[in-house]
Design a protein around this nucleic acid. Sequence first.
RNA 1: GCUCCCUUCGUCUAGCGGUCCAGGACGCCGCCCUCUCACGGCGGAAACACGGGUUCGAGUCCCGUAGGGAGCACCA
Length: 471
Amino acid sequence: MKKPVVTRFAPSPTGFLHIGSARTALFNWVFARKHEGKMLLRIEDTDRVRSTKEATQALLDGLSWLGLDWDDEPISQFSRAARHAEIAHQLVAAGKAYKCYCSPEELTEMRETARAEGRPPRYDGRWRERDAGQAPPGVAPVIRIKAPQNGEIIVSDLVQGNVTFRAQNLDDFILLRSDGSPTYLLAVVVDDHDMDITHVIRGDDHLTNAARQSLIYRAMGWQEPQMAHIPLIHGPDGAKLSKRHGALGVDAYRKMGYLPEALRNYLARLGWAHGDDEYFTTGQMVEWFELADVNKGASRFDFVKLANLNGRHIREADPEYLFAAMRDLAGELEREHDRKGLVAHRNSVISALPDLQPRAKTVLELIDLAQFIYATRPLGMDEKAAGQLNEQTRSMISDVIGSLERIEDWNAENINTAVREFAGKKELKLGKVAQPLRAALTGKTVSPGVFEVMALLGKTESLARLGDQAL
RNA sequence: GCUCCCUUCGUCUAGCGGUCCAGGACGCCGCCCUCUCACGGCGGAAACACGGGUUCGAGUCCCGUAGGGAGCACCA
């Protein structure tokens, strides 16, 4: 019987869920779901200064919004410090690790001479075989692993393939600091082991750590989990993702009006492909996902493509769902006028949405497009709309009102017929009539079809808005 | 500097030795639809980093060069 898959997402609480971490979380989640396993959450909160309760909560909120749920209770790495230390001491007792009494000054000196001689800066193992009896008085030691001095360490990685490191390039790194706290390398291994993690899926910035961590597994005689180091995301200029390009928290994407399903879709497409499929649901993603199909190279973050994908998800989305997203976003952005307008005209907005959806790439744009519905008379005109209205078009509007008033069954089709008849009689192209009407009805030059707009607004409101601009 | 990884249109990618004068998507350009803007449809420009091998045959395998990235802490 195969062991059930257990993955983990192990972020440090920096105050928000970074977009790159979000993708790592997504891959862990998809993989676990695909194999009907678990995704555990471990908060790497050993840095006590940064690890506030709020920062952790922000992380959980980000995951929840993205729709990535986790199994069991999140584990605090810090809370396991005693267990980490226990393992370090066990390793010393077993002769697989040792105490080192070097002072920070000695280490700095070691690094500097190594660098000067063109060697990699690494610890020279001077306490490796020395007796503890020679320890200088009053110095608290660190515990270092006794790393093999020759041979190869092969990290067999589901994404990167077999990556070989020469043992001589790895030094006796520290497991336990002189204050008794564990280093990251130790903590991760012990936690992953204790949590029964079967697959470690993380950013490839950890690839060299994998070799070091492998040493700890060996020393303990523990079975190593499967490794999968996924490539990082770069900014549009190919450099590391920075604040300037897209290294934002997922909350920032929410505020820009992206849908979580679109973000999942886009993030998955960055470095992973299933043939030529570009647009897919999360269910398909779970069905199709294979670590073997993850690319090795980093990819650049492209907002334009994200927007395109978001537009497609908006087009396919259910109006009720989108309405909720619009209302919530208006609330979050403290756009009270929009929030109230949306809520007050809920039904009109929902029935207008099928006309709005193909025109929007973000939820923000959806809100802007819906504004004409709850705009109050007399409507404000944007610059271009104002340009549509002059003496001539205003008097035309009053003529149109006459034709429209006679419509008994107020629907788009009848309005269409009436306006076309009017244009025909006046020998005007439809556009010459429709554009000024649009301006008067919506205050903008861009909107769904004017007939649909009038049908949506109702006869009374439509005629009143037209009347406001008529001469 | 050292270690490791990467390199197909501007970008994301398909390609797993012949079916590739390299396919899709975004973006861009043109046309169509059309009351505006979108959506949609049709068409177009646009790439195997370079140099050596291996092979009957290389985008696909190997080596080198160049370029890019990541990692080298008593950080995580």
